[in-house]
Structure formats: C-alpha cells, structure tokens
C-alpha cells in the first residue's frame, strides 16, 4: 500500500476466536439437468457402446474431440461424425494428493490430458491413469482406455474407468 496510508481496514477472525462472532450457516443443493445437445448426446451414447466419437470439419480438416456441432476456428457447422481410437498419448500429467474440497486423499490419483489417436494432433480430454506406477509416468507415453463392463456403462465419461499404459 501507499506509504501515506498508515491504517489498513479489515479485522481478521483467527481460528481460535472463530466462535466469538456470530455466523449463520446456509446450505444450498443446486440441481441441474443439462441438455447434452446434438454433439454430446451422441458422444455419450457411443461411450456406452464402448467407442469414442468425434466431429470433423471439412473446411479446416480437423477431427474435433470432444465433439461439437460447430467449428470454433472456421465458425461453421461441422460436417460429420468420425470414430477415433480409444488409445492415445499422455500430453501432460500430474499426481493428485488432494480432493476437490482440499482434503487429503488416502491414495494419490494420477490424472492426465490424453491426446486421442485418430483425432487431430493435440486434441484430447482429461482422464485418470491406472495400472501405472509413479516412476513409469512420463509425457508422451502411450495409453489405452480400460472400459467398464458393458452392463455397467451408462453413457458417461466414467464408462472409461481410466487409461493404462500399452
């Protein structure tokens, strides 16, 4: 702050004095039912079938994954469906020791952005890695999808349990 200012407003509430001030608690469980739309509906249905599907743009020739009905570069409708493989390479990865609420996980999670084979170079999605040790992990490693058994698949990104090294 400026050297002309000597007082800085704001009163910290320290952990030990937290109960000295009044506070009201409030919980809201906000529910949503998002329409998946033309592109993601088909993508989810194909996941249930054990396949990954993308969209292609005939103008820029890209195979877009996750699929969308528009090409954001050319700004036009994409032209058709295109099955890609369920294998890919690790673009980048990390090892998570914390959960979404910042609590510690018992077992670390391996997460990666996976470039999917068959889609345009560099296109992929986020997923988990399994059947791999910390030492083996590296950028550029080839991995393949480990699918849930057909009966357990519901049309979700979690129909792929994780990707494992191949």
């Amino acid at each position: 702050m400026s050297e002309r200012v000597k007082f800085f407003p704001g009163r910290e509430i320290r952990s030990r004095s937290i109960d000295e001030v009044l506070a009201s608690e409030y919980a809201a469980d906000l529910k949503y039912s998002w329409a998946s739309g033309a592109a993601m509906s088909r993508f989810l249905i194909e996941l249930k079938n054990g396949r990954i599907i993308a969209r292609k743009c005939n103008k820029c020739k890209r195979i877009l994954l996750p699929p969308r009905i528009f090409c954001e570069d050319c700004f036009r409708e994409t032209d058709g469906w295109f099955y890609v493989k369920d294998t890919g390479t690790v673009n980048t990865y990390s090892i998570s020791y914390v959960a979404a609420d910042a609590s510690r996980l018992k077992e670390p999670l391996f997460v990666a952005v996976i470039n999917i084979e068959g889609a345009t170079e560099g296109m992929g999605f986020l997923h988990l890695l399994g059947e791999v040790s910390e030492k083996e992990l590296k950028v550029g490693m080839r991995v393949g999808a480990v699918w849930k058994p057909e009966a357990e698949r519901i049309g979700s990104i979690l129909d792929i349990r994780y990707f494992k090294p191949i």
Partner: peptide, 29 residues
C-alpha cells in the same frame, strides 16, 4: 446436425452442493 429421434436425446443430471458460513459484518455483528 440435429437430433431427430427422441430416444437419442441425453441430459446430464448433477448437482452443486454448496455450504456457506456468513459473518454479519461489523455493523451486523
């Protein structure tokens, strides 16, 4: 590309559970 058959429509249902603890502020306290 449009969905033309009703059984091809998907929705993704989820929720955002949120909890807050509000202070009342200097005046409110």
């Amino acid at each position: 590309e449009r969905i033309t058959e009703g059984d091809q429509i998907r929705r993704w249902n989820d929720h955002i559970p949120l909890q807050w603890k509000y202070t009342a502020g200097v005046a409110g306290e």
